[in-house]
Design a binder for these strands. Sequence first.
RNA 1: GCGCCUGUAGCUCAGCUGGAUAGAGCAACGGACUUCUAAUCCGUAGGUCGCAGGUUCGACUCCUGCCAGGCGCGCCA
Length: 554
Amino acid sequence: MKSAIQQWIRNAALAAHAAGALPSDLFPAVEVDEPKSDAHGDFATNFAMLAAKSQKLAPRKIAQALVDHLSDPDGRLARVEIAGPGFINFYLQPWAWPPVVAQVLAQDQGYGATDIGRGQRIQVEFVSANPTGPLHVGHGRGAAVGDSVARILSLCGYDVQREYYINDSGRQIQTLGRSVILRARQLLGEEIDFPEDCYPGDYVRDIARGVLDEKGADFIRGADDAAVLYCARVAAGQIIAGIRRDLALFGIGFDRWFSEQSLFDSDEVTRSLEELKARGVVYLQEGAWWFKTTDFGDEKDRVVVRQNGQTTYFASDIAYHRNKLQRGFDRIIDVWGADHHGYIPRMTAAVEASGGRREQFQVLLVQLVSLLRDGQPVAMGKRSGDFVTLREVLDEVGRDAARFIFLTRDYVTPLDFDLEVAKQKSNDNPVYYVQYVHARIASILRKAREQGVAEVAWREPAGRRLVEAEEIQLIKALARYPEVVAAAAQALAPHRITFFLMQLAALFHAYYNKHRVLTEDGDLTLARLCLVLAVQKTIRNGLSLLGVTAPEQM
RNA sequence: GCGCCUGUAGCUCAGCUGGAUAGAGCAACGGACUUCUAAUCCGUAGGUCGCAGGUUCGACUCCUGCCAGGCGCGCCA
């Protein structure tokens, strides 16, 4: 609908210019929006104000010229007015809206889809938690955001690949191995002060028990580097398996699990460093190799090979992102925790130095989650070992509530996640508010079937019976959905879907309370059934972008 | 000290990339279930958009400077 208006304005501008009413053929992009107030019409444009400079005419004169040359072949426009400093307000005929319902029904699961991505290949890398412990709530937020962004982009015509990067190499993995050995020795009765830098969680003890059972006490007592490495591999393997299970429970899957170690095995780390050396952006100083990230806007250069000859984590990451570029992605999106923001300039430098363009690479910084219970903070932090895992949260509040809450806030703002609120089945917890719409409509449809309505299908004269203000409001909201999805894709902002759904739900609940769908009047009933079915489908489609289910009953 | 993010109703947050009179939910108060699910709805009240300048037809939105909070500034990952 909006695009139709844009086209009308564009045509009117050209016609006005052709007729000599507008001096210049330089026109700004046509922006059409939906005014907050009904007093300003169904749609409005600021085109005349924007064009004032190039036309060298007063905005209201331009607006008048446009209105004079506006053509509306099918008569959908009821009225056009020029208002304020030069807004043009469009009022549609009431009958212009109901056909949207037919469109929603016809497109069904595809309603909301667009092709703004034009098949562009885009990779979303998210979660990528280190395999040193189970996922916690913060990872959950990143998972919800990354997954939803991927779903939205897919629906908008992007060719999306989801990836999880496993840091299964380097020092922390060694620390993990050491932790296992130490726990195993404790199990053997040794008195050991567990070091600060090791991983204390119960899961480490479980893994240690497993290794002990399998390899025997001598293996643990005489542990050498190889044994530590062995324990590290076993532990990482088990932890990753657990992470996969938790993510599956959360409804999240990946196209690829990418191992950091594989970059060493394939020599890509070395090769990427050689390439950078060849480009002259890596230099030797005080026995270490430095990447000149300052050439690319970073505040200081960064070490890639330490004095001791070991590569840094950053070196792996350079190789990893070079690998991504080589796989031919047009865009690369990384979802990170906000505490990594200082890492962005150097990573951008790496992408650029590896032959990518800086616009190709984008990082979504997901802010911290604080876990609360009844407003009181719940202890977290790996060091203490008693942090609440994502799994525990899912078991307690359920997948739908958790995902919805993670996405009811823009990810740039910190989030308080209150376990008690998440469990509440009230308006405090909007996931149920939205799901309730779906269930209520399912109930209406069941009832209609009982009353002998064989099929809910759009039929033309009947459709004209949708004339109530609440009905038109609902249809307008439905019409907006594809634009909301597209905007969410462009801004990489899944919370826009969430807010749209809450708004649509509010409109539906209000309508439901004021008007009956099932009436004595066959045509009216059919029209309203079509409307609520369209609402139901849109709710379902929107929820699916969030990874939330749409229940038939509650 | 430097950098990034945030500051909107008592609380939690939106505000469609500069548009018209700044919006929701919760909390408060008053109402609505013999009728398709009350996990719902209707109404009342609630604001110096952190502060001060600037840019322009027009600023919550952009720029500058302050103030407050969070996070980050390793040859850790």
